[in-house]
Design a protein around this nucleic acid. Structure first.
Lengths: 116, 116
DNA sequence: ATTAAACATCGACGCCTGTCAATGTTTGTG
DNA sequence: CACAAACATTGACAGGCGTCGATGTTTAAT
């Protein structure tokens, strides 16, 4: 009996088939995962939205703490995560630190996601 | 001295200004965060990409374990997360479980993200 | 100089998550 | 029926994460 007959044809067709296009690399996967991890939190999504919705599209921590319902250190922590990930920028005027959306950062993350 | 003069005008303009559009709700933020959390992992991003790149756009666990470099239980765990989040579907034929991308799931997540 | 306000940082706590080895379950094969 | 293969589930562990109170830092006002 030929060896080929030991393996049903269906198996050869269905299982362990080759790739038909290049999959994402490990490095790109880690990079995109980091970007998404920064967004994958309810508080941070709301912060982004609140900054965007705020007058002049910028907001200080005192604007955000009460509406968000979290402590000031926690809000500062989340804002730092968003800044480090490139979604927000900070400018300091006097005692206030003003956070603003980085133009195109969110949409470029969305584009990367759709291209996976 | 009138009370208004006790507070510098700049402060009234800059801090604690009102919202100019509706921010995302707490429920929507939690829902989107759950969807993003399922994607915010290098192994899961690679799994999605590998399934999409695979022949006939479907793959079984045995196709994915070796290229991913993780144990079979870990791969099964990640696939379950992606199925629960609605990004993958499963069909069982014989002993094999075939995973396939859910049409439009990734792009709709990307659209939600861009709309934050 | 003192005080107060805005914000960041630190330390600690509980919870969640990614990972694996071991085991269970289902399906096909001899 | 017995055995093997594909896959899921369980249990356990280490590390990461969200949260807060306490404290430090910087700036402005008196």
């Amino acid at each position: 009996m030929p060896t080929a007959q030991l393996i049903p044809l269906r198996d050869l067709q269905s299982c362990c088939a080759p790739l038909t296009r290049a999959a994402i690399s490990q490095q790109n996967a880690e990079s995109l995962a980091r970007s998404l991890k920064a967004l994958a939190d309810p508080a941070r999504l709301r912060l982004l939205s609140m900054v965007a919705a705020h007058e002049d599209s910028e907001a200080c921590v005192c604007d955000l703490t009460d509406p968000l319902g979290l402590s000031q250190p926690t809000v500062s922590h989340h804002l730092k995560v968003l800044v480090d990930a490139g979604y927000l920028s900070v400018t300091k005027r006097g005692t206030w630190h003003y956070y603003r959306l980085v133009e195109g950062a969110l949409s470029s993350a969305a584009n990367l996601l759709a291209a996976v």
